[in-house]
Nucleic acid binder design. Sequence first.
DNA 1: CGACGTGTTGAAAGCTATCAAACTTAGTGG
DNA 2: CCACTAAGTTTGATAGCTTTCAACACGTCG
Lengths: 248, 248
Amino acid sequence: MAASESTRPHRTALAAPARTGTCSTCGARAASVCSAIEDHDLSRLEAVAETVRMAPGTVFITEGEPADRFLNITSGTAKLFKLLPDGRRQITGFADVGRFLGLAAADQYGFSAEAIDAVTACRFSRARLGQLIHDAPQLEARLLRIASTELAAAQEQMLLLGRKTALERVASFLLERDASVPVCLGSGSGVSLPMTRTDIADYLGLTIETVSRTLSTLRTRGLISIDRPTEISILLPDRLRALAAGEG
Amino acid sequence: MAASESTRPHRTALAAPARTGTCSTCGARAASVCSAIEDHDLSRLEAVAETVRMAPGTVFITEGEPADRFLNITSGTAKLFKLLPDGRRQITGFADVGRFLGLAAADQYGFSAEAIDAVTACRFSRARLGQLIHDAPQLEARLLRIASTELAAAQEQMLLLGRKTALERVASFLLERDASVPVCLGSGSGVSLPMTRTDIADYLGLTIETVSRTLSTLRTRGLISIDRPTEISILLPDRLRALAAGEG
DNA sequence: CGACGTGTTGAAAGCTATCAAACTTAGTGG
DNA sequence: CCACTAAGTTTGATAGCTTTCAACACGTCG
């Protein structure tokens, strides 16, 4: 992931790992809470944060464990989920670059988090977040804004899970993913899906078979093309949007 | 919240409307954000807040409209929901006494709110919330805590909507309602349901028929008794909890 | 008393899940 | 370079849970 190979087609720039402990050069800063911190306060942040790397499949937050740490994703994508005793899983969201994780009013994490691809993150303790907020009060307003945004997204997802059909769910998912990609290359509407069909199914409240069948239906209808399982192009965005909104 | 009539069976004490503009005697204060405000700051709060009364069925927040006001429920229960163009509805939550409404990072409300029974609330503008936070910074921490708690609840509801069966959903709902009743009378486990079956269905992602059938099933199995449509008793809380957790 | 809104129960249909098998992709080693 | 393996994906057939359509019961209220 060295940024030296600038001719590579994919998202290598975004995947560049943060240099350990140098917030001022952190590629995720602009997209994260840290943008709320002034330059002259960054040194203080560096002092309390550590950079961690997680291999794909690593569970780095476990529901029910003491919520004593926060992290900020600096590269890669993670899935956040909750489990039922018999193994049924609901993915509550995907966390990309800049996502702040660990917000919890309770003493325990309310969800688990697992790295999908290689994930790097900036980590610090709950106590130190308190320090940071004390030093930079605007951080708290920023966190409130983040929490509000996540809450709105959660409510939108409740609408999806409770009232949308499989076709509408998959359409919504593709558009959401499309919008989430920061500054992709000029591939038009190429949606990249680092997660498996199982992950998508557990996010949309469906089975992998239904996700696969639904994607095939969208392809047959000409709304999308499935270039590879992990790469989908949106051909008719307007019709896909209509579907996602429940007007299809 | 006059405690003078202590012999009355139901929640009449809670339903007593707040005296207009007197925060210091507001019955909802202890349960709301306002508990974060010191006594000597309350007069300032009174100056910027107005008390509003909504009749049952009143829609007092509409999705998509400018989010320029906040309110704090002082009595009654409201339903929060999102709609699809064809009328499908997802209720994202019920707001009881003390609930703070209007948190939104966006400029528009992300949901609508409608009074279920008679609702009274304390209302103030977004600009004035800024003033309040400026005067009482601990308010912001409190709001962050509230948002985090709501976020955790939303994630739990996503698990319910995406992965639980009708039986598990209804069991979860009854237990949630049971826990939400502040200090009910000593009726054991009497759950009061001010909302209709339609509301319950739209909250659980089911139809009214399925809700009704599922309640009947729970009654047949001896887990609950349906005293009235709006009043249900939990007879076997352990088995209901097991069901709700997905172990049933 | 009758109308109406709400809730309950029944029968059939539909969408998605489950079970099963073929196919594709990526990685490995001959 | 290609065969082989394992994981993931796609497609097919069937089953099941919930929805839909319909009728009846209950309680309120004019």
